[in-house]
């Protein structure tokens, strides 16, 4: 596996928030970070450390105040809303702590939802890919059920399938085990490990559970808006 190519790089990214009293809070301080293709990384840190803000930068959900976010050699931090939305759609797949599935859509429709927002012609049949992913994750029999009718572990598998439907270069998981019991949480991390090893998918998890973070091959620790350690 070649590890030379960068999937995403942060170049001196600073994020400041204007607080209600007029003062400025710096959530991220000139962060430099390079995520290589095929890496399995965990971002850790206590609450308020800036790890969520860092995730928002990587996930293109927010823009840096200063600095650049480089994807495939291109600075995307100045792109307009449309272009950023397309990148979120194609480049990154999100997995959230709260699963964030739409309960009014069936499981299969939830998985297919990102494909309804794509602007490019897909080289594969989305429906076939959705069924393939559901089969791989053992939820194919639930495809016509609604998310609130299945277990938490199954919901998180649906969320992972949804994140993978667009064949993104990066999976970004925010506390993926936070709402699951220990056993189910371990199963989800097993799934990530398998996807990373077998399919070579780049994965970044944000977590505060050390046990979960240790399963990743790279641990990035954030504290007070700075990266304090980066172990491979």
């Amino acid at each position: 596996m070649k590890e030379t190519r960068s999937t995403i790089s942060l170049n001196k990214v600073t994020k400041e928030f204007l607080l209600g009293d007029g003062s400025v809070f710096t959530a991220l301080k000139e962060i430099n970070l390079d995520i290589k293709e095929g890496e399995f990384s965990a971002i850790t840190g206590p609450s308020g450390s800036g790890k969520s803000t860092l995730m928002h930068m990587i996930g293109l959900l927010d823009r840096p105040t200063r600095g650049g976010v480089i994807i495939n050699g291109r600075d995307v931090s100045k792109l307009d809303d449309n272009a950023t939305s397309f990148l979120r759609n194609e480049f990154v797949g999100f997995v959230f702590q709260q699963f964030n599935l739409l309960n009014k859509l069936t499981i299969k429709e939830n998985i297919l939802l990102p494909t309804t927002y794509t602007r490019k012609r897909l080289s594969y049949d989305p429906s076939e890919r959705a069924e393939y992913l559901m089969d791989m994750f053992g939820i194919l029999s639930k495809k016509d059920q609604y998310p609130n009718k299945v277990s938490g572990g199954q919901q998180q598998r649906v969320a992972v399938a949804r994140a993978l439907i667009m064949r993104p270069q990066l999976i970004l998981a925010d506390e993926p085990t936070g709402n699951l019991d220990h056993k189910t949480g371990t199963e989800i991390i097993d799934l990530f490990e398998e996807l990373n090893k077998k399919e070579g998918i780049t994965i970044i998890m944000v977590t505060h559970e050390m046990e979960v973070a240790e399963r990743a091959r790279r641990q990035i620790r954030v504290l007070d808006g700075e990266i304090v350690s980066d172990k491979k």
Binding site: D81, S85, F94, N100, L102, L113, P114, Y117
Partner: peptide, 16 residues
């Protein structure tokens, strides 16, 4: 609001 957030995160534009 949450639904809007989810849709935006997975690629919906403001126009969508």
């Amino acid at each position: 609001t949450r639904e809007v957030g989810i849709r935006r995160a997975i690629g919906a534009t403001k126009r969508d």
